[in-house]
Amino acid sequence: MNRVVTGAHYGLRDWLAQRITAVIMAIYSVIAVVVLISSKSITYAVWRDLFAQGWMRVATLLFAVSLAWHAWVGVRDILMDYIKPDGLRLSLQVGTLLVIATYVGWTIQILWR
């Protein structure tokens, strides 16, 4: 099979993923803001009970995974635009992936402690 490593359609999946994750995060954000401003005062009990609910944990995890994927595409685009030396760019991209994976792990730890 003759495959070209550059050219049309190779970036389509990332492009689409960035948009789908954006929509997921936008919906979560609107719900979160409505929940936060509709409660009179946010005490520890209110805050803890909110994150104790199963749907909130799953929704927040969905948000975190969307954010991870979305941010990966965005940061990768920035690195591709401004960092020209290949070795440095690759190192920064690998570093970014590691940081993002760590954040997702940390988020799971926070949500299911």
Partner: peptide, 29 residues
């Protein structure tokens, strides 16, 4: 682009605050 990069850089700080706010009442306060 700048706001996206800024939010990514700030993520560690926001996660740190979320972590503390949910760990105990004293940490929340």
């Amino acid at each position: 682009r700048i706001s996206g990069a800024l939010l990514f850089v700030a993520l560690v700080w926001l996660l740190w605050m979320l972590d503390h706010s949910l760990s105990s009442e004293a940490a929340f306060e």
